[in-house]
Every structure is written in C-alpha cells, then in structure tokens.
Design a protein around this nucleic acid. Structure first.
Lengths: 238, 238
DNA sequence: TAATTTAACTTGTATTTACAAGTAAACTAT
DNA sequence: ATAGTTTACTTGTAAATACAAGTTAAATTA
C-alpha cells in the first residue's frame, strides 16, 4: 500500500506555477505575481512562497530580479528530462512518438557497464529496454535504459508503448528522479545506430551516458542515449 | 570606483564550504558538519546556514538526506564552467594550459550570430577572441568567445595568457556568471577545427553554443566551443 | 542473545518579524 | 520641459521559533 503523504505547501505552489508556465498562462518575459500577492492568493507566508520561486528559478523556469520581480524564461520542449530545440526555429508543438525496439526484460548487468554499480544492484540484476523516439516522424533518440530490479514488481509486464518510463515509475511505484550525472561525447555512428536513426555510417552522433538518482537512495536509473543532432540540438540551462 | 558591498553571511559560508570541498578538506561521501554545528561554528541561525547548503546542493557539490546529513559529492575538474572527466580514470590533477589563437579585438558582431542580440549589444560591437585549451598537452577545447563591449574599458589591452577570462571579468570588472543557456550538437570536424584539435577531417566533434548571463542584466557572454571527446567526456550534473 | 523500543540526533516544513537594497513611477523644484 | 527627489513598490538577507519526519545507535525488554 502506498502512503499518499500530504504534499508540502511550497511544492503545491511550485507545481501550480510550473504548470501555468508550461501551459502558457505566463509567457516568456511576463512577470509572475509578486511574492506578497502570491502569499495572499494562496494563503502562505513569504518564506514559503520564496521556496517555491527559488525552486522554479533553480530549474530555469524563471529568473528573479531584485526590485523588479520574477520574470518567466522561455522553456524548450522536453523529452524525458532532455530538452531539444530546433536549429532554425523552436520545436513548438510537433508530434512526439516512441517506438519500443526491445521490450523490457530482466537480465544480468553487462560486464563492462558504463557506471560502477553497488553490490545490491549487481545482485538484483537489471531491467533492460531499447527505444527510439521520433520528433515529427524523424528518429532523433536511440535510447537504451537500465534499471536495477529493486522493488519493482511486475514491471516487465507493463505497457510502455504510450506512457513514458518516468511516468510509469512515478504513477505505479512512486519513484521520482531527483537529479543525476551525465557524460557527453561525440562519436561516429555504428551500424546499429545508423540503422535506427536513419544516418550514414560514421556520421557524428551525440552520445549521453547518464545515471539518475531517485527518491529511493538505493535505486538508480541508467541510460545510454544516441542522438541525431543534424536538425535539432540538445538544449540545457546551467 | 568599485563599491565593495558587504558579502551576505550565507554567501560567506557557501564560499568557505565550497573551497573546502574543492580543496579536498571534505572528501566524496563525507558528511559536512550538521546544520546546528555550522550555526555554532559560524555564528549564524539555521535558515542562513540552510541557504548556504541549498546553494551547494543546487550546484551539485553536496546532496542532502533527511535524518542523515549533507553528503559531499565527487566533483570533477572544471575548465571555465565546463567540467571534464576522463573516459577511463578521473582527470585528477593533470596540467591545464591555455593558448591564445586570436587576441581579443573589438569588432562588429557576425551577421548570422548564433543567438539573437539586443539593440544595445548590436550598437556596442563585440570583443572577439579565440583560444585552445590543453589537458595534459593534448588540445581538447577550441573556444571562440564573444562579449558585448559594454562597460569594459581597456579590456583588449589586458593579459589573457595565464588568467582565465572569467577571472579577469570578475577581478577587474566585478562581473560574475549567474547562469545561461546552451545548445549541444555533434558535428564533423572542419579543416580549421581539425587543425587546432589535431584531429582528422570529418571526425566527430562536440559543439557547444552557450549564452551566459551575468550580474549585469545587459551584459551576456557568448561562446562557441569545439571539443575533442575522444579521450575525455563533458561531465555535468542535473 | 535477539528483537524491539526509545532517545538523540539529523534535515524538512512553516510562521512571524524586521530591515536592506534595487526599481520605477509619481512628484517637485528649477 | 527637465532634472532631481521622493515614494511605493519589488526582491534580498537575517533572526527566532516550532514542530514534523527520517536515521541511527543505545537502551530496554522478551
């Protein structure tokens, strides 16, 4: 059984404002209501409101200016926790599709895994899957995921086609991504990669290796992502 | 004349702890002193201490665990605000060198600049420079920088060889980088890039385009960075 | 001895209060 | 009309306080 746990106030306000920004209620360059206005609107005190705003600022949704207010940043389209932007125009509301190449299976970890694993992870084995993601019917990401098989009953039986992996983990297992490490390289496309991403052999491809931390301190998600960056770029804020 | 402005307490503690972490006083996996201990040690209240710690956490220096404490993360070597890590071992304390390819000059902005510029920036013209950075005597970064010529007297006359650009901006003009956007792609090396980075033509190279925000709301720094990722990766936290 | 409970720690959330400092528009004196 | 000043906003910094909730190890109990 899952304990729902009351959501903290600052998180509630954070979710509301974040949704408003990504829904376009507040547009790029707009000022959010002032901290004191938000206090009155949502019945909280200023430190609480400020905690919501500083979370938004840290994640790049807004920037704050003393004496002026909280200004909304433009925010690019996200795929998983990757953001992409078109080289010429913005990605906008183009269609996103996901195709499963290899359905999730339980197996041993690869011998030369890209990150070092804990003993618990090694013993548990890993859930492996491969997907290709399309933007506007063009294959952009070839994505290999590994998850340690820790407290994830019946996960290989679930339907991955339309829902995102993160969504399933969040809805069914209460697992949320808290942060992580990544390594980025440019590599020539192998035969397999060029086939999935419709590229010529040896063409430059972006390779991301990432380890994601979750709210369960023992559980990490790993992925190896190959990216066709001919028309789109990986976009990030720092 | 520069107004020194008293540094806020939370920032003072942040700088102290950050230095301790990067100097190795606290190693990876170590616990920082508890919040209450820091309060006593530095004579501040818990909200102030917590502000320092949450800044460190946001920047990836530590992670916090309720009931346990603040745990120090491993932190990779930084070049400017880029972090690199070796593919096999850590970068550790290898030698870093910078070579100036094109000394800073004042010129017009390129016609098809990678980011959109404000009117003020266009009018001011830009300071342009090219550098190559070496790690262990191997050229890793080919770096083209653009800065709007706003309130930066005599900057082209300054000595860039040993000090970093960021250091000069900070020490001489009180300019600090607050954040920014970046786009990442994999491209084939052009003739120029392959010459500077000692690569074959067409070999995959990482290309970063970044716009950096400063504490002066009108002043941005831009750079286009080409990266040899054969032996090293760009490392990041999110 | 082994399992359980308790106590003493840790960080997380939240309120209240106060003043500092930056911004912009309204106001005032020239 | 314009330059300078005031004023009313904004966010930034900081204190004191309280309780909730997660972690760990010592103390207690079966």
């Amino acid at each position: 059984m899952v304990t729902p746990k009351s959501i903290p106030q600052y998180k509630r306000l954070y979710e509301i404002l974040r949704k408003h920004i990504s829904d376009g209620v507040y547009m790029e360059g707009d000022l959010l209501p002032s901290e004191n206005e938000l206090c009155k609107l949502y019945g909280m005190t200023r430190p609480t409101v400020r905690q919501s705003l500083s979370t938004l600022a840290n994640e790049g949704y807004i920037k704050k200016r003393q004496g002026k207010g909280s200004i909304v940043n433009h925010f690019p389209r996200e795929i998983g926790i990757l953001s992409v932007s078109g080289t010429t125009s913005a990605v906008g509301d183009r269609k996103l599709k996901t195709m499963i190449i290899a359905k999730p299976v339980l197996m041993q970890w690869p011998a030369d895994f890209m990150f070092t694993l804990t003993e618990l992870e090694k013993e548990s084995g890993c859930i492996y899957m491969e997907r290709v993601r399309f933007l506007d019917d063009v294959p952009i990401f070839y994505d290999i995921s590994y998850i340690a098989n820790i407290n994830l009953p019946r996960i290989t039986a679930r339907q991955f086609e339309n829902r995102s992996l993160f969504q399933i983990l969040r809805d069914s297992y209460r697992i949320e991504i808290k942060g992580g490490d990544q390594r980025i390289k440019a590599i020539p496309a192998t035969a397999k990669i060029s086939r999935y991403l419709h590229l010529k052999r040896e063409q430059p491809v972006l390779h991301l290796e990432r380890k994601m931390e979750t709210n369960n301190p023992d559980l990490f998600l790993y992925s190896s992502i190959f990216c066709n960056t001919e028309k789109y770029s990986i976009f990030g804020r720092f």
